[in-house]
Amino acid sequence: MLEITNLHARVEEKEILKGINLTVRPGEVHAIMGPNGSGKSTLASILAGKNDYEVTEGSVEFNAKDLLELDPEERAGEGLFLAFQYPVEIPGVTNTYFLRSALNAIRKYRGDSELSPTEFMKHIKSKAAMMELDSTMLSRSVNEGFSGGEKKRNEIFQMAVLEPTLCVLDETDSGLDIDALKIVSNGVNTLRGPERGVLVITHYQRLLNYIVPDFVHVLMGGRIVKSGGRELALELEEKGYGFIEEEIAAKA
């Protein structure tokens, strides 16, 4: 469903991604790990359509469409969802209004009819319960005054409501205590299924104890330098990113 080929990107003059290749098929969970500054979040932002980056080479196909040609809202319509590393506060817009606008826009994009207010409320209440979110939060402004953990839970809640086919989680585990981490992971696991791909971007192995990946990729210096199964994440946890640097150096 997602096919990234030789992706190069830069910010101003600085080249950050230097040739990424990655294929995600429906039903697969991929983890991208890497040290700070390796380009993980840049990759997530480019997939979602943030225009702070310039793609200089390569391509990204999503559902056989050229993803890079689509506006952010079209990508969401196609089924892509990015759980933000730093969710944005929007004072004056309630969570309910925000989600109804989003869900109905996505439905419209797909040629489905809008949900009635009753259907919509039923839908989001069941998802809120799944994420163990207090229902008063629905009438609060988007992320305004939320704690770090609440914001991350809200991201996964939105994901559950919008039911995307490709979920990209950008450092969703950062700033979470163990209880919140379990709730968030549980939410993601509920969404796992044969039709859905998941891309988990993280610095630490910890999250992968709960969201068990099929594939693990190590991103360093703007390239995927090593790929493997779940055991690679455990190895990284044990040895740190240094051992891969040594491996690369040895090969060179």
């Binding site: 979602a48 359509g49 809202e73 969401a76 990015l82 933000f84 989003a102 869900l103 826009a105």
Partner: peptide
């Protein structure tokens, strides 16, 4: 905030 809304599917 604009990007956040659009990334959730809301047209510009």
């Amino acid at each position: 905030a604009m990007f956040y809304l659009r990334a959730r599917g809301v047209p510009k």
